[in-house]
Design a protein around this nucleic acid. Structure first.
Length: 355
DNA sequence: AACACGGGGTC
DNA sequence: GACCCAGTGTT
C-alpha cells in the first residue's frame, strides 16, 4: 500500500493540533524533567510493554541508585536486577547494562545521536532508537509503539493487522511523512500521550480528542472497530513441585537460574518439573543433582503464576536437610534476612509467604 | 514471520 | 478469562 493512498489529512494542521494539545495536557512525569539522553533511555526501556504508573517508582529508584552512564556501567549485574525486581522482562535490564558498558567502551560515555550506532546497541530496537533520537536529540525519527499504531489506524482508517511486523513498518513510513520537523519530540510524545489518555483501546474519548476533526474512524463511527489485531495463542500450563528446604541452621536453599531464557540470572527456590521427575524420586534427585539429603515434610500451599506465554502451577512443599552445603555452583543456603539481597521473580516472592 | 520473554491493570 | 501495555531478540 502506498502511503499517499492513506494520508488524507491536512498534515500541518494535524501537527499543530496534536502538539498544542500535548504541550497543554502532558502529564508531569519524572523522565520529563529534562532531556538527559540517559534518563530518556532508561525510561523508554522500562516503559516497554509496561504501564506508566508501574514504571514511575522503579524509574525514580533506579536513577537515584544509578544516576549516570558511568554508575550503571560499573554496577554489579545482580544489583541492577535487584532494582528491576518485579518489573518483568528482565533481559531489558541486562541488555541495558550491556549497552551502557558499550557506550563507555566505544563512545567515551556519550550516548550516540545517530541511528546506526544507537540501533546497534543491545535492547535498542526501532522504537527505542526513534524515541531517544526524537526526545533527547530532537531528530525527526519515527517512534512507533502500540499507541501510535492504534491512533493512526483510527485517524487514517487503516485496517491492516497491527500484530504483523509488516504493519509496523507501514506506520513507520507514514510517521516519516507526518512528523513535525519543527518539534519531533512533542509530536512523537503527543501521539503516545494521546493513545494513553484519549485514544484508548476501549471506549476512546473522541469528544475530548484534539485531532477529532482529522479522524476518519470517528467520522464513520467505527473507532471501536480499529485497530485490527489478530489474537495470540494461549499459554501452556506446566506443573512443578517447588521446595522450601530448611537446614539445621534455619537457612533455606536457593539457586541462581541459568543466564539465558526465562527469568535469566534471577534466584529461586529449587523446583522440579513433575512431568519429568516423579514425586517420590525427589529425594534421590536432590542427592544426585545437589549432593544434599532432603526429606519432605508437608505441603505448604499451591499457587498459579501466569506469564505472557505460559502458566506455572506450583505445589510448594516444606522440606528439611541435614546438610549445610551443596555441591552445585550457584546454589546456597541463606537466612531469610540474607535472602533479601537476591533478585527473585514475583512467583518465588509469593512462595516466601509460606516461610 | 512466529515465538520467547513478566507482571499488573482493566473490563 | 481476555486484552492491553512507550518492544526486542532469536529462530
Amino acid at each position: 500500500m502506498k502511503n499517499n493512498e492513506v494520508l488524507h489529512i491536512d498534515i500541518p494542521q494535524f501537527q499543530n493540533d496534536l502538539i498544542s494539545w500535548y504541550q497543554d495536557n502532558k502529564r508531569d512525569l519524572p523522565w520529563r524533567k529534562d532531556q538527559d539522553p540517559y534518563k530518556v533511555w532508561v525510561s523508554e526501556i522500562m516503559l516497554q510493554q509496561t504501564k506508566v504508573d508501574t514504571v514511575i517508582p522503579y524509574f525514580n529508584q533506579f536513577i537515584k541508585k544509578f544516576p549516570s552512564v558511568q554508575d550503571l556501567a560499573k554496577a554489579e549485574e545482580q544489583d541492577v536486577l535487584k532494582s528491576w525486581e518485579g518489573l518483568g522482562y528482565y533481559s531489558r535490564a541486562r541488555n541495558l547494562q550491556n549497552a551502557i558498558r558499550e557506550v563507555m567502551a566505544s563512545y567515551e560515555g556519550t550516548i550516540p545521536a545517530n541511528s546506526a550506532d544507537l540501533g546497534a546497541l543491545k535492547g535498542v530496537g526501532p522504537y527505542t532508537k526513534g524515541a531517544i533520537l526524537s526526545i533527547a536529540y530532537n531528530q525527526p525519527e519515527p517512534a512507533v509503539d502500540g499507541n501510535v499504531m492504534r491512533v493512526l489506524s483510527r485517524i487514517l482508517k487503516i485496517d491492516e493487522d497491527i500484530a504483523k511486523p509488516r504493519t509496523k513498518k507501514l506506520f513507520e513510513e507514514i510517521v516519516r511523512e507526518l512528523i513535525s520537523r519543527a518539534d519531533p519530540s512533542s509530536f512523537n510524545q503527543g501521539m503516545m500521550e494521546l493513545g494513553a489518555i484519549v485514544c484508548t483501546p476501549k471506549n476512546p474519548m473522541c469528544m475530548l480528542c484534539p485531532v477529532q476533526r482529522h479522524c476518519h474512524a470517528f467520522a464513520e463511527g467505527i473507532e471501536n472497530e480499529l485497530p485490527v489485531k489478530s489474537k495470540g495463542k494461549k499459554q501452556k500450563t506446566v506443573p512443578y513441585v517447588a521446595l522450601l528446604i530448611q537446614n539445621k541452621q534455619g537457612k533455606y536453599l536457593i539457586e541462581k537460574r541459568p543466564d539465558t531464557g526465562l527469568l535469566a540470572n534471577l534466584w529461586q527456590f529449587p523446583m522440579i518439573s513433575i512431568a519429568e521427575t516423579g514425586f517420590n524420586q525427589i529425594p534421590d534427585w536432590f542427592e544426585k543433582e545437589y549432593g544434599i539429603n532432603v526429606r519432605l515434610k508437608r505441603e505448604a500451599g499451591r499457587l498459579k503464576h501466569v506469564f505472557s506465554h505460559l502458566i506455572w502451577e506450583l505445589e510448594v512443599h516444606q522440606a528439611v536437610s541435614s546438610d549445610t552445603k551443596t555441591n552445585r555452583k550457584d546454589a546456597q543456603f541463606v537466612s531469610q534476612n540474607e535472602m533479601k539481597a537476591f533478585p527473585f521473580p514475583v512467583s518465588h516472592q509469593k512462595m516466601m509467604q509460606f516461610l
